[in-house]
Write a protein that binds this DNA or RNA. Structure first.
Length: 338
DNA sequence: TACGTCACGGTTGAC
DNA sequence: AGGTCAACCGTGACG
């Protein structure tokens, strides 16, 4: 909690907090600038973010359509869910001599698991050994009297929230399709992805119902990133505003640090490429409050474009990859600025 | 020079 | 309550 009031300063004079994601506002700026045609190296210098980071954020954005960081911490959901164990037990009862790999195949074939939540052979072995134990011995006679096992259901994956891109991403069943300008998240490669976790629900839901702005949706999305938030359907704090982990970000204003407004960085040349660390001091603490961040430097678009001012939250639709379509419209402005 | 990649030291959160 | 583990982070260096 009482973290160092300020983070560290990188070679470019930018402030960062080791181990923590850059604030969404910065991430967003990176993407926006890239969309405006500014080269990554220039973005890096202007925002004082390492080029590796810029590269990473842009690459992710290109890949996933999201500017948000991945889910930090937590554990992957176990694949050996009670349902899976139950099925394994059943298989073992029915065929005590069954091999773990055969069980694995059957779990897949029966739809108990899909390829993404299929336990490894060793996991199955462990289950057989630890959870089912000598079941195989009794199974023979028990299997006969055992209640007919319900046909394996196409699992509801216990971790359906973690379902993978292949099955969920584009437009998960039941999910409203995003309006064109809001389309996003094609894929999130990580099993811990927002998409996976949320099933995309919140993003669209919130977005569509609450606000057309990117910000709330994105924030919600981000809040969802946290594994803590898991029960996706119920995250009441849609904007994740009171999420602890959101807070840090919320406070991560680099304002004081001289982090420019869009105006200023768009007119990059005015910014010294290197900011002496001494100037870079504190942004009010990585742990300020959300409001602090919000009240931070509001960033105004260089033009009167559709971009809305944003602070901690991502308030601009630009963050959507699909918005690249608008790039052209915006471009002229920047072009002149540049 | 620009940029993709990766080791590193760090944080986080589920278990 | 506290430790472990595995995820993620951004930086900085290398090629």
């Amino acid at each position: 909690m009482e973290k160092p009031a300020f983070g560290e300063v990188n070679q470019l004079g930018g402030v960062f907090v080791n181990g923590r994601p850059l604030p969404n506002a910065i991430r967003l700026r990176i993407v926006e600038l890239a969309q405006l045609g500014i080269r990554p190296c220039d973005i890096s210098r202007q925002l004082r973010v390492s080029h590796g980071c810029v590269s990473k954020i842009l690459a992710r954005y290109n890949e996933t359509g999201s500017i948000l960081p991945g889910a930090i911490g937590g554990s992957k959901p176990r694949v050996t869910t009670p349902t899976v164990v139950k099925h394994i037990r059943t298989y073992k009862q029915r065929d005590p001599g069954i091999f773990a790999w055969e069980i694995r195949d059957r779990l897949l074939a029966d739809g108990v698991c899909d390829k993404f939540n299929l336990p490894s052979v060793s996991s199955i072995s462990r289950i057989l050994r630890n959870k089912i134990g000598n079941l195989s011995q009794q199974s023979q006679y028990e299997s006969g009297k055992q209640a007919p096992h319900p046909p394996p259901q196409p699992t509801i994956p216990y971790n359906h929230l973690y379902s993978y891109p292949t099955s969920k991403v584009p437009t998960p069943p039941g999910m409203p399709t995003l309006p064109g300008h809001m389309a996003m998240h094609r894929i999130w490669p990580s099993s811990h992805s927002v998409t996976d976790i949320l099933g995309i629900r919140s993003i669209t839901e919130q977005q569509i119902s609450d606000s057309p702005s990117f910000s709330s949706a994105k924030l919600e999305e981000w809040s969802a990133i946290n594994r803590t938030n898991f029960p996706p359907a119920s995250s009441p704090l849609v904007n994740g505003v009171d999420k602890p982990h959101l807070e840090p970000e919320a406070k991560y204003t680099q304002t004081l640090n001289g982090l420019p407004t869009v105006n200023s960085y768009v007119t990059a040349p005015s910014i010294p490429p290197y900011h002496p660390p001494t100037q870079v001091s504190p942004y009010m603490g990585y742990s300020a409050t959300t409001s602090a961040y919000v009240t931070g430097p509001t960033w105004q678009p260089a033009s009167g474009s559709a971009l809305s001012p944003h602070s901690c939250d991502i308030a601009t639709p630009l963050a959507f990859k699909s918005m690249t379509a608008n790039r052209d419209a915006i471009h002229p402005v920047t072009a002149s600025v540049l």
